[in-house]
Each structure stands twice: as structure tokens, then as C-alpha cells.
Amino acid sequence: MTPRLHDYVLSASCYKVRLMAALVGVRLDLVAVDFHPGREHKGPAFRALNPAGTLPVLETGELVLTESTAMLVWLAQGHPGWTGDGSRSAAAQVQQWLAFSARLAASLGMARLHDMLHFPADIDGCRLAGIDCLREVEAHLFEARLAGRLFLTGDRPTIADIACFPNVALAPDGGVGLEPYPGIRLWMRAIRSLPGFIEMPGIHRLHELRPAPERGAA
């Protein structure tokens, strides 16, 4: 079957999965869930699918996955490079950043849910923790660049980059500016330049990658 993603267009975690699928050329059946204001994901019908009442959910035909990082692993299977180069060190580094992406969701992601959808949160604490995360990413990317690497775990993107990218790129929605992070800016540009990249509200594609529309074209 075509994998089915229970999806909310404004969710950073749902976008991770849509983006990964687009980058590896996997088609998804999207089922829109009324996350806000309907809270459909907390209703009995949705909980029958995912008792935790969280988005996204991916039905693969064989599995029902409820963690976005697991969905990235599932989608990347059979697409060499996206899970690392096969070495022990790359495998461990990918896991390191997948775990780190949970810190991004709990800090920058929660600040965004607070500001956009009025989630209750310690907003100052979320923003400060988010700035700590951004500083860690920036320092890591600086050292990576010295070694000639553009992405988090090497010279090509992996699921680690896709797991971390959305909540970093959407940080301004939660009141955390990205102005002070030149390394993060170049890293985000490299991800947005990947063939197959798709956008979401708040993360637009690089218009300059295509020629200017012809004058007079519809």
C-alpha cells in the first residue's frame, strides 16, 4: 500500500516526514487531521489508531509508527547515504542528532506552539533552552565546516539533518530569531537546495534556484 500519513500542515514533525518522503521520492497518502482548533487527535477515533493522541502517525501497511524519527528511518531504508555511510561512527552520530531533535521540539517547537496555537508553556524557559540548542548546532556546524563538512554528520545530508531542520528553521515563529547564526543559515540553505525539497508555511523554497518567470507568461 501507499504509506498513509496522518498529517497537520503546520506541524514541524509532520513536515519532517513529508520532506523526507519527497527527498527520497516516496509518495504518501496524506490524511489531514484537525489538530487546531478541532483537537481531533485527542478524540476516540484517533486514539484508537495512536493511544498517545499525537501527530504524526504513519501507517506503512505493516506498522503504525507514532514517532517522526522512526518514520524517517523507515522512509530512508533502501536509499543509501540517508542513514549514514554504514560506519559505526556515522550510525552513532545520526542517533545523537535524532535524540537532539527531541530537545529542539521541546524548546523551539514548544515556544512556537505557545505563540501560534496558545499552548500553555514556560515561554521564557522554552526560548532560553531553544537558544542553547541553536548555539550547540552553530558551534558544531562551525567545526564541521573547518573539516570541510556541510551537514551535521558528514558531507552529505542524512535523516539527522531532516530531523533537526524544521524546528530550527521555524524558530522565529516562537520568538527566537535566527539572525545571529551564520553557520545555521548556510546549513539551512544547503538543505533547501536539495533536489526534491518541498516547503511548508514558514519555510519557503529558494526561488533563485529557478530562472525568473518569462515576461508575459501566465
Partner: peptide, 15 residues
């Protein structure tokens, strides 16, 4: 307002 190598050809950044 930044280091030259952080503003590569074809980009705009805030200053």
C-alpha cells in the same frame, strides 16, 4: 557586519 565567507555569492542576510 559579518565575515566575508559567511555571505557567499547569491545570498542576502540581515545586518
Amino acid at each position: 557586519n559579518g565575515l566575508s565567507r559567511d555571505v557567499v555569492a547569491g545570498v542576502v542576510v540581515p545586518g
